[in-house]
Amino acid sequence: MRLDHQIIKDMVEYGSSVLDLGCGDGELLSLLVKEKGVNAQGIEIDEQEIYKCVAKGLNVLHGDIDSGLHDYRDKSFDYVILNQSLQQVKHFETVFNDAVRVGRYVITGLPNFAYWRARLQLFFLGRAPVTPSLPYTWYDSPNVHFFSIYDFIDYCQKRNVAIERSAYLDANNRIFLFPNLLATTGIFLISK
């Protein structure tokens, strides 16, 4: 099991309702259904991924994240999951605000732009960094927002969004010290 999926799974209460934005092939949602008995709904832009989700018996909507949340009522779900997708949306603030509106909690996994190897590449090589959590070259990246773990924490504080839990990891392990330097990814459980 992917480490980030394991961490997210541990953040989700049994029997809750979950909306996964950018659910891909449905691996995470399927895990949550099996192990946490959640009531699951996915949203995914890629038609081929939709077929994979449906084959797993998931409810999934073909659409983009930017417009996917808008129609839902306040607190429609216990959890809104945005795993490795928030950095790719066009309108970050709109999606973020909608996510904390629609979900009682939001769980988001984000790539850390201030990871030490990214810093080194930028500082010593003078090149746009390519790291395990930011694996794309500058010209073909789907990511449009680049920020660090500290940036995200600051952002939540300024908007009175509470960070209930957080976890940090690199490619294979949990990171407990200096996450903004040593972690490739931060996972946050937040609420407003």
Partner: peptide
């Protein structure tokens, strides 16, 4: 979505126009 109904939606990439519902057997069957 507004009524909390479990829903799956797919917009199949077909060039057949409205007739597609009779013709895109592979995707619809899946």
């Amino acid at each position: 979505k507004l009524c909390g109904v479990h829903v799956t939606y797919c917009e199949i990439d077909s060039s057949y126009g409205h007739d597609a519902f009779l013709l895109e057997a592979k995707e619809e069957t899946h």
